[in-house]
Design a binder for these strands. Sequence first.
DNA 1: GAGCACTGC
Length: 725
Amino acid sequence: MGATTAEQGEAAEEGEINPFTNKPFSDKYRKILAGRRKLPVNKHRKEFLDLVQNNQVVILVGETGSGKTTQIPQFMVFDDLPAFKGKKIACTQPRRLAAMSVAQRVAEEMDVVMGQEVGYNIRFEDCTSERTMLQYMTDGMLLREAMNDPLLTRYSAVILDEAHDRTLSTDILMGLMKEIIKKRPDLKVVVMSATLDAGKFQKYFDDAPLMSVPGRTFPVEIYYTPEPESDYLEAAIFTALQIHRTEDAGDILLFLTGEEEIEDACRKIKAEADQMPDAGPIKVYPLYSTLPPQAQKRIYDDAPPPRTPGGRPGRKVVVSTNLAETSLTIDGIVYVIDPGFSKQKVYNPRIRVESLLVSPISKASAQQRSGRAGRTRPGKCFRLYTENAFMKELIETTYPEILRSNLGTVVLQLKKLGIDDLVHFDFMDPPAPETLMRALELLNYLGALDDDGNMTPLGSTMADFPVDPQLAKMLITSPQYGCSNEIMTIVSLLNVPLVFMRPPDQRKMADEAKAQFSHPDGDHLTLLNVYHAYKTSGEDQKWCYDNFCNYRTLKSADNVRTQLKRYMERADLDLVSLPFDERPKGPYYTGIRKALCAGYFMQVAHQERSGNYLTVKDNQVVRLHPSSCLDHASEWVIYNEFVLTNQNYIRTVSEVRAEWLLDIAPSYFDLDSFPNCEGKRVLEKLIMRRKSSSSRERDDDEDERRKNRKSDRGDRDRKDSKRRR
DNA sequence: GAGCACTGC
């Protein structure tokens, strides 16, 4: 960093000529500058520069509206300018949209062209140039850069913004920064957080100095219920209606947990409010991330006017998931209803399953929610729980993601970053040892780590791919099975939301449309069929609509595929296909299914004589998800996803053969490590038979046996011929 | 016979 003062920085900003472009400042610039001077953080410029010039790490707490995200990076870039050595300043954001919009805003504030001196870098979009001095980016993007440049030599300073969010990437970056600063005394690190939890950050960074900037919001009155509510949904709807009938003008934001609940609540609120003779008109909008963007935008519509001039005010009600807690802000909200729940990811290392659970929120989250009522004027927040519950039952902050996730990718990334000793890596919150063990075990079976836990060349290549380790393994192995083109497609589709649409009122038609793409050997090949049909249609939006496929999803899958292809080429992997063969059991499809096994051999289920499926090794009883196109005649299946709801479902499933599993993953299918179950006995017999005859003959026999088994079923052939495309 | 909170590379 430089040695400039706040006065010098301000003088440069108020001069005639823009020091970054050597052009005169515009009028618009001066107008914006006047507004910037009023931001709370502006009073702390001197204090900040003193701290950052004299310390390698600075922690900054800035509440909502303090201006930290836009101003702090500018303070630094002005300080950097006189002695600029060609190194950039990075400012990370957990979300892409934030990185883009903040960069746009700062480019305007600095009177430069976006992508020149100020830019952003997110997946699929690098909007920077050689001139770029200040770069906003996603935290995941900086992490990926670190994997190829472990000392982050391109940067003079790294600002980790929204650190209180504690995303996986931010947590790893923080640990990494602690390592890097030892080797890069010239690198400055600023950790910015919006919560009072900053003491924890300060301690983690060896008592780095802490600077605190107040926010600029309006007061929000908090109301608690006197007694606990037995049904939060009912209470929420009641409260919304009560506000509508009795409170002054101002919009309502209600937090619920998921799509179905939200749609249901919207209908009920609308229906009841329309029947209230003494209340104004009402507009109710749902908000969740899978809602099409067009529908999402409606939350910004104005509230309806009163029915008669001077009558009861019209009102807008937004019923939202956590999306409105941090990612999106809606101006004009005056009333917030907080039932105190959200869906949260939890990871169970014992059965290796991530699932979503409706759980009580944290105090920090409750505060964030109530703050949403005070963005434009004083507001009110109705918490549908008791004050006592808030004080005594809610945890302080939501558990960071690293404590709630499967860490396969994280461990691989850390290894790639050169962190050999994971057990002693300085996590801000160390994950459970069992979770780390599970990750190491997975990576070892996949061949990414050797038996000593060191990264193999395969693991190093796997880490380069922006997908789960299993999928990376599939991609890298796929040329050996002659089907990398097809595996790229399947992996892309597994990395986007569900392609198949199923509107509640057109289920039958949607299912029929989907049946056209069904492949008898499973859902992975069905995905491949859809993609081919989409490409054949000329990537036609109408075709998607007519066939109940999500156009946006297919488009983004194609985007992902293009990126994967670049990574394949970079890794010098062949892009190949087997000659197409219409037979479902022909080599074209068999090759693809074998490649699937190479990544997913740890997610296998075996059908017992009872008809139940049991997951291999963990012996969990599971059922095929009803959306699966596979019927129940498949003895061995691999699955992409274990869905834990009222039932245990496996979703996105394909039929495989025991022989392939034994060949592809002999160490995982070492029967000594198997608990007793039918599947184990089947494999034992298979191994015995293989010992007594050559495996090639045996495989042919097996093929024959299966063919007979299937054609026993009268309807099966008919179905096959209908499904085959 | 159907539970995708939210992000990110």
